[in-house]
Amino acid sequence: MIEISNLTKHMGNNTIVSDFSFSAGQQECLGLFGQDHTAKTVLFDVIAGSTQPSSGHINIQGFDTQTHPLEARQLVGYQLSNDLGHPTMSVKAFLDFIAAIRGFRGTEKRDRLEQSIARLELFPVLDAPLDLLSIAWKRKVAIAQAILHGPALLLLDEPTEGLAQDQKHAFKALIQSLTQEMAVIIASRHCEELSELCTRALVIANGRLVADTPLPDLQRDSRHFQAVTLTAETPLDLLALAVLPGVAGIEEHRNAPGTVTVLAMPGHTIYPHINTLIASRRWKINSLNLEPGRLNDVVHHLTKEASH
């Protein structure tokens, strides 16, 4: 599907991306994580063909982006992180223009437009000029233009920026349905949001690929994997918690008294033990959560490691 080999990109004297290789297959959803936003955006720009790599190759369904730029671009849909804007062009006119450039005519063009407008529910803003839209709407229009031509590879750069919490659910459903049709790569600072969507995680630090693993593996690396957070009305007996088998440590929340996070040793499950303890001591518990692992921490940790 897409194969990237030894990709390097210099900008001025800086090396933004160095010796980057990975490949992705159809119906895969990749999360591209990392603290450095520029590296992710530049990587996307190079894949989409808007900048040329300094060295290395990108192959999208057999088309090299350097030797067959137009064919490769036709296979890619790209939602840029830059704000889309135009003083007079309306959303409808803009999408129509993009569809025309993508080579659609007549009824096919109309069908494509309707499909992608319906998918992103753009009906309320169709006649509004691009400049007047809020950030969330602009994101939606940008995604609509990216999926218009049914690309084989969809690049989303910070797609959830500016979305309200309730819109994020709709967005997740959309990405899940898109993953059925195409390969999706999502770059984001908010890893946790994507943990349910992505199957694989790429972590980029200092321009290098420092991790390329299934997302659950990355979560397993977290200190908080299998950790339990509980809130109680009455003060808890922390010592009793600490001596439970498999407990690695206890973190008290400074700004929320009565809330503690119990960390598990790697390879141990502490949830059942804590449950038994609560039952035997008859603690009044308000909330009890099993954590899937904090991705942000892992990514931060990997980035720090890479810079040493």
Binding site: D45, A48, G49, S50, T51, P69, L70, E71, R73, Q74, V76, Y78, L80, N82, L84, I98, I101, R102, G103, A142, Q145
Partner: peptide, 8 residues
């Protein structure tokens, strides 16, 4: 930047 990613 969007124009640069289009097949044109």
């Amino acid at each position: 930047s969007l124009m640069k990613t289009l097949p044109i």
